[in-house]
Simulated assay, not measured.
Amino acid sequence: MTLRVERDEESGVAVVTLDRESRHNAIDLETARELSAVWREFRFDEEVRAVVLTGSGAAAFCTGIDRGVEVPQPASPYSADDPLIAIGPKAADLWKPVVAAVNGMACGGAFYLLGEAEFLIASTTATFFDPHTSYGMVSAYEAVYMAQRMPFGEAARMSLMGTAERLSARRAYEIGLVSELTAPEELLPAALRAARTLAGFPTQAVQGTVRALWSAKQAALQQALAQAPALIALGNLPPERQADLFTNRSRTQRPRLR
């Protein structure tokens, strides 16, 4: 198991923890399957009325897809397989509120999860960045999710600047990506406090409000995501070239924090 799921039946809150601390909670195929399964399970669990999503350890919330994962792809860009496409709660048709508690780095494929949470609470040590362009990859799904959560210029800057910059928790709070900042030791208590409040309200009203909020953005989101496979197929460098860039930049580049 690469997820840790803890349920508090008294409060109605479940805590889902990405549990691959040694890999900075990067998502492999097993993690992707487990995430998809747990969101669908929560749809039928009446005892779970709100969810907190976080990562194990202090270094990272999630660093996206595990680079050790190989996903064979069909030749046609119209049939591209994205192993992360179903890891978020909304992809599983879950309309119970999800509060993301971001500890440490959140980058790349982590935005599939953050993009489908209701709101984010972050430790003051959290950072956000999107490494795709640095490694010769198109940021498509990630950029779309973040463009719906951040001012356009900020989303564009993060998506384009790759590993050269990281968005600090303070800046993320200032632009509205993060709704609350906490000391590292207060992160989970703050997220649980919010989730317990939501779980204590009449559940149909809460879920209906979640659904209403998402209806305001979902049509545009789906249209934008539909363009992603072709853009990735056209713009990505070959995998071996990506690997070379990853190795060389990881050794030499120190990101600027803003």
Score class of each variant (00 low, 15 high):
V99T: 07
M137C: 08
E41A: 15
S56F: 10
A92P: 12
E9A: 14
I65M: 14
V178Q: 01
E9M: 06
D66Y: 10
V138H: 00
P89F: 06
M161V: 06
I121H: 02
S168V: 08
A191V: 10
Y78F: 12
L188E: 08
H132M: 08
E185Y: 13
S79N: 11
M161H: 09
S134E: 09
F61G: 00
V98W: 04
N103Q: 15
R7E: 13
M158N: 12
T127M: 10
E46L: 07
S76D: 15
H132K: 01
S22N: 07
G208Y: 10
T17V: 12
E46R: 08
T209D: 10
R149C: 10
T125Y: 09
P97F: 01
T54C: 04
A143R: 07
T133F: 09
E180T: 09
A147I: 03
F42E: 05
F111L: 05
M158L: 15
F246K: 15
I232E: 01
T203V: 12
T252D: 09
M105P: 14
I27M: 06
A233G: 08
V16Y: 08
S76R: 02
D8H: 00
Q207W: 02
P72Y: 01
F42R: 06
A50F: 01
E165R: 14
P97K: 07
A140S: 14
K217M: 12
D93M: 09
A228Y: 01
